[in-house]
Simulated assay, not measured.
Amino acid sequence: MTTAGLTDASIVRRVVAECDDRGRDAFLDGHGFERANQYYLQVDGRLYDAKAIANVAYRYEHMAPDARVISGGRDHSNRLLERIGFAVVDGRPTTVEGERAWRLAVWSHLQLTEDLSLM
């Protein structure tokens, strides 16, 4: 898998907006991805499937075919996203600090996407 080529943060933001517009499941299905099970891109307090966002952004940036060119995980999609200024949160933390970061990220996401007044 490639580790170069994702360089334009504005394209990542465009892909995030597409995900918001289409909805998570429609976005993932339309681009051939499944839901993330560990790593999530955090943008403006909301969480997104890191590997899917990185791959779709790469496709748009390089007009690449729909093949997956970026694998998931710390050394691939996460590193590429972090290198251009984004935060990636581990949904299966192994440290107290990681657990705190994950819980804060989920809380932020819920505040922005759910009607908490019903709780």
Results as ranks from 00 to 15, higher is better:
98 G>R: 01
56 V>C: 09
50 A>G: 01
50 A>C: 07
78 N>P: 01
75 D>W: 10
6 L>W: 06
64 A>E: 05
89 V>F: 07
47 L>V: 08
13 R>C: 06
63 M>W: 11
22 R>Q: 14
109 H>R: 11
57 A>H: 00
4 A>W: 10
112 L>N: 03
20 D>I: 11
93 P>H: 00
118 L>M: 11
4 A>R: 12
113 T>D: 07
83 R>K: 15
95 T>V: 02
112 L>F: 09
70 I>D: 08
106 V>M: 10
46 R>I: 02
30 G>S: 03
13 R>Q: 05
88 V>I: 12
50 A>T: 05
108 S>D: 11
47 L>D: 06
99 E>Q: 15
12 V>R: 02
108 S>Q: 11
87 A>H: 13
119 M>Y: 14
46 R>V: 07
75 D>T: 13
88 V>M: 03
74 R>H: 05
26 A>R: 14
108 S>F: 09
91 G>L: 00
57 A>W: 05
8 D>F: 07
21 D>W: 11
13 R>S: 04
115 D>V: 05
28 L>D: 02
2 T>P: 04
103 R>P: 04
93 P>S: 03
30 G>A: 08
16 V>R: 02
99 E>S: 10
93 P>M: 00
43 V>T: 09
57 A>C: 01
30 G>V: 04
21 D>Y: 11
74 R>Y: 13
80 L>V: 00
72 G>Q: 02
83 R>F: 07
103 R>C: 01
31 H>I: 04
98 G>A: 07
37 N>S: 12
95 T>E: 01
33 F>Y: 14
84 I>A: 09
8 D>I: 02
52 A>T: 05
59 R>V: 10
83 R>E: 15
50 A>F: 07
55 N>Y: 04
24 R>N: 14
56 V>S: 10
11 I>Q: 03
36 A>H: 01
48 Y>Q: 04
108 S>C: 03
